[in-house]
Design a protein around this nucleic acid. Structure first.
Length: 117
DNA sequence: AATATGACATGCT
DNA sequence: AAGCATGCCATAT
């Protein structure tokens, strides 16, 4: 919980970037930071999610690590909840990992067009 | 004021 | 593969 309960311009831009991730797709912390205009600040994305995911009703479950793995400890409550939410919107989660090649907001064009690796 | 911590990422070994 | 070092920076101590 932030003491100020106020968000910096930076944090708000990060939240905005998260809000526009389409349903059925995921984005990495780094991608969000980059789109928000702060490349290299992936860690701060995790920070705003931790502090503001509840009170701002953002699709926090659509944010995963660059390698596709969920950021939570395996079998933790948050981990399971994220799995549920992702699967509910059609995103595969295999062994705690999302196949980024098919579900990332940044897709390989061949995979997108031809559905092949 | 100084140090530690963390829903991360990337490069090097 | 798996670990380590470093970059990032808001918060908490």
């Amino acid at each position: 919980m932030t003491t100020s309960a106020l968000l910096s311009a930076r944090q708000q831009k990060m939240l905005s970037a998260i809000r526009v991730i389409p349903k059925g797709r995921v984005a990495s912390y780094g991608q969000i930071a980059y789109r928000a205009g702060f490349p290299g600040c992936a860690r701060q994305v995790g920070q705003v999610l931790r502090d503001c995911s509840e009170e701002h009703s953002i699709p926090w479950h659509r944010v995963v690590r660059a390698n596709g793995k969920l950021a939570f400890l395996d079998a933790s409550e948050a981990f399971l909840e994220q799995c549920r939410r992702l699967k509910k919107e059609g995103v595969e989660v295999i062994h705690g990992r999302v196949p980024m090649k098919y579900f990332s907001v940044v897709l390989d064009l061949d995979a997108e067009l031809w559905g092949m690796p």
